[in-house]
Design a protein around this nucleic acid. Structure first.
Lengths: 191, 191
DNA sequence: CCGGAAAAATAGCAGTGCTAGGATCGGCCC
DNA sequence: GGGCCGATCCTAGCACTGCTATTTTTCCGG
């Protein structure tokens, strides 16, 4: 029936509405401000409808995180391919990564700090997630040398992740951010 | 009066009791299991007494974290000074850092992931905290070269922090841990 | 138009951190 | 020794959380 397809369309629309509301609320006031009640109010439905779309709050955060992976992948690719020489690719990608984390802290948290339910380095890792890591793989390829590409990518990623998280937690001197980023890339590149 | 000093002794004792209970509970079942009610039950007092010792749950976590800094400092120093040649010091310290995070995840979380109320790279940073960082400073000194020591220490610390957090969140391949650690140290040491 | 299924809302549960109020205990003064 | 009074502690409760059982409403098909 036609009504059935319309129903499904409306459901999908509301699904997007929930994810969008969660993301906007998180980016505006942090994830601790994202409660199921506020979310329900935001989409102008009652609380329980959230649970007909998602298994719980974690699942909503995971949905937001997935958006983040797609965007991060795009930004990493843009940064990497904008390089004129291969050696420049990594530096640009790293800067893009740090900028992403700085500009969308709530999104970054959903992707890497919370929502640990997402399967990562396993077989059933979602595609968007694989793609983001694949970008990193390509970025480090020029500096790999004899080292395993994947291991190197994981290690460099860890360095970036540590930099942005410790920085945002107020653990590192703000004004030295650029220098640390440069130092990490430079030494990891054996330059 | 003598009673006054006894009172203070008992208060101090209960203070330690709270911190110990919080730490043990966190290490056994994670911080999400550490609720003010369970904590109160553990020390066999009512809930509100916690608030006569600490301003809130965050303050209790911060107290646990401070213990962690003292212990981490000791382990880093032991690892560093156990090295026979200066180049070995950093690798040992890094391994000690990773081992600390792996063996006391809840303690590590209190120190670096939660409890962001602790002032870090500022003037009023507690001594135990400074000492831990000072250990890292010494560990990286042999590999500093022309780079700023403090910046290098911050960067390497970020690398370690990223490794242990992403690893524990299931974001990295467990079996490659050693290789990543080695790769980080090797490249950051320009070897 | 009406019956019934699907959809949505109300109301509630068990838990959280934290606090205002009242009870109880202990040390000091007369 | 007896009574007072302040410190100490507990009971009860607030406002909130994520989540769900139950009831109410809506809306479609015959």
């Amino acid at each position: 029936m036609a009504t059935q397809t319309r129903r499904e369309r409306e459901r999908a629309e509301r699904h997007r509405l929930i994810v969008r509301a969660a993301r906007e609320l998180a980016e505006a006031e942090g994830w601790e401000a994202v409660t199921t009640r506020r979310l329900a109010a935001e989409i102008e439905y009652s609380q329980p409808v959230l649970y007909s779309h998602f298994s719980g709050k974690d699942a909503i955060m995971a949905a937001v995180a997935m958006e983040g992976f797609a965007e991060l992948t795009a930004e990493l690719r843009a940064a990497r391919t904008s390089a004129t020489v291969p050696e420049q690719a990594l530096a640009r990608a790293a800067a893009a990564y740090a900028a992403f984390a700085e500009q969308r802290p709530a999104l970054y948290d959903a992707m890497f700090t919370h929502a640990s339910a997402l399967p990562f380095a396993t077989a059933e890792t979602p595609d968007d997630l694989r793609a983001a890591f694949a970008e990193l793989l390509e970025a480090v390829r020029p500096i790999a040398g004899d080292d395993d590409l994947e291991t190197l990518a994981e290690t460099l990623w860890s360095g970036l992740h540590g930099l942005v998280t410790l920085m945002r937690a107020g653990r590192l001197r703000e004004e030295e951010h650029e220098r640390r980023l440069d130092l990490l890339i430079r030494r990891m590149s054996r330059r």
